[in-house]
Design a protein around this nucleic acid. Structure first.
Lengths: 150, 150
DNA sequence: CCATAAAATGATACGTTATATCGTTTTTTT
DNA sequence: AAAAAAACGATATAACGTATCATTTTATGG
């Protein structure tokens, strides 16, 4: 799992790109999320920030996470109550597919047109409409399957 | 002190089918879950049981839910932190597919070989292995899509 | 530049979801 | 009936998340 690239550090002032105001606090928290190689929980993020000398209350943390979610910087893994950086492109009207290995917790986005199309087609026939949807898949990754972790 | 319940004289006989001991408590809670037409939350279940004159603590409730989950009587919807009856067949080695409408909360299992096969095939090629897996789909159901609920 | 409005953040309290621990009761097995 | 195992109860507390209102910071119009 490669650590993700930190958000742009040179912008000390809030920057507006497409309505996304990435303030200091938001950028710092996003950086922490990006520095992890696995989804991080909200209260762990609060700890990380404390470790960096910044005291963040739950309210502030969840507010910030909400912002980062809404603006496409991160995703939330419901299965884990945890957050990870967005790496996909997510052109509008496509679905978000999150894979989490049930064994090792490895998590990643799946951005695959073939898979998406196959699901989209069949789900349509079943009366289910993928648009701005979320799909969470808990399954086995290559190595966990190989090692046959129980 | 627990008030005397006149019907306390004798606990129901547990029935064993395939190692699943469906005791009185477990059966009652399962009945409540089945009586709902939407996924139920743990603390709501505690309330329902209270309404029926049975006081159940969180520990007991979660223990019971864990049993019902393990033995295939119910499923948990991570997105909602809620529980619903298992209606599918889930022969071993197949994946559980849960659909939740993002708008109205309608939830149901999808037991469709065509969809499963399509996903299985492509995910395999992507290094993801569906076996005893869980897939949660948040999307729009027929009527919510039609009415375009915001 | 200052006044003002809007957006963001801080502080406190509380609500919801879930688990740890240990003691008691019930059921099974012998 | 005794011993072991499984289920259940009681209490406390951890983990996850929100409501509310005050304060600070940033954007914007005169």
């Amino acid at each position: 799992m490669t650590p993700h690239t930190p958000s742009d550090k040179k912008a000390a002032q809030p920057s507006q790109e497409e309505g996304a105001r990435l303030t200091r606090l938001r950028r710092d928290i996003l950086d922490v999320i990006c520095a992890e190689n696995a989804p991080v929980k909200a209260y762990d993020l609060i700890e990380r920030m404390r470790g960096k000398g910044r005291r963040v209350t739950p309210t502030t943390m969840y507010r910030t996470l909400e912002f980062l979610l809404q603006n496409g910087f991160i995703h939330r893994v419901n299965f884990l109550n945890a957050y990870l950086p967005c790496t996909g492109k997510h052109k509008n009207h496509t679905a978000l597919l999150l894979f989490v290995c049930s064994e090792c917790g490895q998590t990643r986005e799946i951005d695959d047109a073939q898979l998406y199309n196959a699901m989209h087609r069949r789900l349509n026939e079943l009366g289910i409409y993928l648009k701005d949807s979320r799909i969470e898949i808990q399954a086995a990754c290559q190595s966990c399957r190989a090692s046959g972790n129980p």
